[in-house]
């Protein structure tokens, strides 16, 4: 005769447990916001052109230049860094280093860094390359050519 009582208690306990579990599930519906994501510093694009805008973007993108042109390279980056050395290394088709220039930056988000080279006596015709490195690691490159009009 006791068995039915026991099963009734067991049933009630099961209901309470289920209710308790439901409460617990409700509490976990509040999901804490994820910690602020830090984006690793990296180069997202390298562009070439003959002029730049005030925000260091290439105004007229091209990879063909005339001997009297100033060559601009705009390096777009994202992420943060306490100090990243962005280096542009310009080389001629024979492997000769034309120019190397380094800009050390401490970005807190998306940024653009420009490098430019000019040769008052005129660029020799031929193929050139610019390689962009960040702290010594290759991050991008572009080929360009100098031709007489």
């Amino acid at each position: 005769m006791r068995a039915p009582h026991i099963s009734r208690f067991a049933f009630a306990g099961a209901v309470l447990l289920a209710a308790g579990c439901g409460k617990k599930d409700d509490a976990t519906d509040v999901i804490p916001p994820p910690p602020a994501a830090t984006v690793a510093f990296r180069v997202t694009s390298v562009d070439l052109g003959k002029s730049i805008t005030a925000d260091k973007m290439i105004a007229n993108s091209t990879d063909d230049f005339a001997p009297g042109d100033t060559v601009y390279v705009s390096v777009a980056t994202e992420g943060t860094s306490p100090g990243a050395a962005i280096k542009a290394r310009f080389t001629f088709q024979d492997g000769q280093v034309v120019e190397e220039s380094t800009q050390t930056v401490a970005p807190t988000g998306p940024a653009r860094t420009e490098f430019h080279i000019v040769k008052p006596s005129g660029w020799p015709e031929g193929k050139y390359k610019v390689e962009i490195t960040v702290d010594g690691a290759l991050a991008g490159s572009k080929d360009f050519e100098v031709k007489r009009g």
Partner: peptide, 17 residues
């Protein structure tokens, strides 16, 4: 070719470190 007269410059929208 002689590149000794090449002049260069750089600038950035990011602060200098």
């Amino acid at each position: 070719p002689d590149f000794s007269d090449v002049r260069s410059g750089s600038s950035s929208t990011a602060p200098d470190s």
